[in-house]
Simulated scan of single mutants.
Amino acid sequence: MRLFVVLLAGVAATLAQSASAQTPEEPPAVVKALGACRALTDNAQRLACYDAAAASLVQAEAKGEIVVVDRARAEKVRRQAFGFSLPSLDIFDRPARAARADAPESARTEPPPPLDRITTTVKRASLRGDGKWVFELEDGAVWLQTDTEPLRKGARAGSTIEIRKTAMGGYFLNVDGQRAIRANRIK
């Protein structure tokens, strides 16, 4: 467990450094170069500019210098990370670059709604010796009950679980519609 926390802290620090090196409002240079081509009025120059910028963009992605993520993938990452507090993952909560104030009205999109609850299925559930439940979900996430509220009927594989954020930053879990219990994500 301690190794996991140390590794998680290292990953968070690395991501935070790379996030601070490039502000989220500022697109990478290869994307800026592509956008700059729009300003050219000569058709031949504009086409040559777009060809060069597109080639640079494709090359940068192939080298792993940039990563292109569509909304579906961003939503999947947001769901997988639900319950963790990693500030560098907030890039998946940001609206598409097209929603920026300087984008043309026709190109703007609505930002995704905040992810404050998920509903999923329990893969495994076990009751520890101290009376607290551990839930492994279908996506591999593991949640540990933090209060001592008993469940009327036990959780089992296939149980439906709803997890929602509380106003103070914690999480409530409802198993098969039962009374909510408090829990934290541990994996």
Results as ranks from 00 to 15, higher is better:
171 Y>I: 03
169 G>F: 03
172 F>I: 04
135 F>H: 14
140 G>Y: 00
162 E>H: 01
62 A>I: 03
175 V>T: 09
66 I>W: 15
108 R>D: 02
98 A>F: 14
175 V>G: 05
135 F>L: 03
71 R>W: 06
115 L>Q: 08
95 P>K: 04
117 R>G: 15
61 E>Y: 07
58 V>G: 05
52 A>E: 08
70 D>L: 04
128 R>D: 15
56 S>W: 07
112 P>H: 03
54 A>P: 07
139 D>W: 04
137 L>I: 00
56 S>Q: 12
77 V>D: 13
102 D>A: 12
130 D>Y: 09
122 V>E: 11
164 R>L: 14
146 T>K: 00
154 G>N: 13
102 D>K: 13
152 R>M: 08
135 F>M: 03
137 L>A: 12
51 D>N: 15
128 R>F: 00
114 P>D: 06
143 W>D: 06
91 I>A: 05
88 S>D: 14
127 L>R: 00
72 A>K: 00
53 A>N: 11
133 W>T: 01
86 L>E: 10
122 V>H: 15
101 A>G: 07
172 F>H: 13
107 A>G: 02
161 I>K: 01
70 D>Q: 09
116 D>A: 06
114 P>F: 15
75 E>Q: 14
64 G>A: 06
75 E>K: 15
143 W>V: 00
149 E>S: 05
111 P>L: 10
138 E>Y: 01
71 R>N: 08
175 V>Y: 02
79 R>P: 03
124 R>N: 10
56 S>Y: 04
121 T>W: 02
82 F>E: 01
97 R>T: 07
99 A>N: 08
61 E>T: 01
95 P>A: 14
90 D>C: 04
164 R>C: 06
153 K>N: 12
103 A>N: 14
116 D>F: 06
121 T>A: 12
174 N>I: 02
